[in-house]
Nucleic acid binder design. Structure first.
Lengths: 237, 237
DNA sequence: AAACCCGATTGACTCAGGTCAAATTTGGCA
DNA sequence: TGCCAAATTTGACCTGAGTCAATCGGGTTT
């Protein structure tokens, strides 16, 4: 699958009319800088299931996700997988300025991203401390999320994991598509299981149980929160 | 307990003869800067079990750990605890430049740290991009460790967790006290359990089992690796 | 040196979530 | 429309780790 269907568009795109501009890394750039920045990135596409980069790769590119969803994961030698996060439009990937990526990333569905070569990007940052500061902020925010996820993985029950996941995912979608009680789930049950440290069967059973209890409704391509307060209660407990 | 026995030494200490200087944040500073930096920090002490800061506190200080060990953790409303990491000399704590700490930190045994007030520290960084870069590197390294720990919490068995923990902890001690097959464990069994997402009983039983099998030996204040290769095998599997 | 405390260990039993094996549903495509 | 392959759900059973309840030490106090 790897890099098989990747396409690179040679023609111009403009940062100024980029959908994710206001919350991505580039939010910290002024109009003049943006012009220069524009020439550093090229727009790339990935097809469903394609691997964008692998954990053992040394970092040669950074990506700014524009459209679609990606799963970020690590594998154990025997094939067990832990998904360490999902990336959404506006997310910046590959912050390892040196060394290797320490996780792999696949496209879930079609993905568009803005790709930057490591060296010119590094040079660009060099004399722009505000951009570095922005990247630092993003790293620290992710670190906070990572710690929250450790609590979930280490100390929460299956029900709590599912409820917390639904609310967290819904919250992440708000800036992209506004508030809603219907949570689209583009990732598979297996992906959810590997994100929450469960098996696919437990994920499925938990959804069914919550539906039987009238807490959620399993809809096509997602979950509808029938009783958001009860979901919240499950997640807090 | 909180801040009860804290002492602040008004008299001078010098960064130049600081034990952790070579691997702490300050490693990125030149001699002249170091002089200025010296005036920003004050040396503080914490007694066993004392809380240095809590997750809900808004960040007003950063700490550079000089001596001792700290546990960094998050609590669920019902009291369940997840330890998200242990801090050792040279570690920089409280990287949230704005907002609140998102974890709590207690001293395990007596601790000495270098404390910086947020505002002057922020000002100092402002026109020193190399320091910001250093902090960024540290954040990204921690992010990598956090992801590794997610894999452990979500996908590894009790035996694997214990083995991985022993090797990881031993590796972290190398720069501080050199390589050794005897791993000191200053933290309690409960701390280890809360770090690995286990119960204290499982931690205890697993240590006993490994000792029965001749893989480790439980010594006063730590664990001696009798058969490091076997521990390694357990951690890799 | 007896009494006490507190962390650690051990034992017996339980159960949440995993495993294995069918159904069943869904989606793609000829 | 109908067929195949993959994803999801469901059921029956099992087990790794949790729970609950004694002990066991080692260290400190009196």
């Amino acid at each position: 699958m790897r890099a098989s269907v990747t396409m690179i568009e040679p023609n111009g795109h403009f940062c100024s009319d980029c959908a994710v501009r206001s919350f991505a890394v580039c939010a910290s750039l002024g109009p003049a800088e943006l012009r220069e920045f524009e020439h550093l990135g090229r727009r790339v596409h990935f097809a469903t299931g394609e691997t964008v980069f692998s954990e053992e790769d040394i970092t040669t590119s950074f990506f700014n996700l524009l459209e679609g969803v990606m799963r970020l994961y690590k594998l154990l030698p025997d094939g067990r997988r832990q998904i360490v996060g999902f990336a959404l439009p506006g997310d910046f990937l590959g912050m390892n300025m040196s060394g290797r990526h320490n996780f792999s990333a696949d496209a879930i569905g079609a993905v568009t991203a803005c790709q930057f070569a490591k060296v010119p990007f590094g040079r660009f940052i060099e004399d722009r401390p505000h951009l570095l500061k922005r990247i630092n902020e993003l790293a620290i925010r992710e670190l906070g999320q990572a710690r929250d996820h450790m609590v979930l993985l280490g100390r929460r029950s299956a029900d709590e994991k599912i409820a917390t996941f639904l609310l967290g995912w819904r919250a992440r979608l708000v800036p992209l598509s506004g508030p809603s009680n219907t949570v689209p789930l583009p990732m598979s049950r297996q992906d959810i299981a590997d994100y929450l440290g469960l098996t696919i069967e437990t994920v499925s059973r938990t959804f069914t149980k919550l539906e039987r209890h009238g807490v959620i409704e399993i809809v096509h391509g997602g979950i509808s929160l029938r009783d958001p307060a009860r979901v919240e209660a499950l997640a807090t407990a």
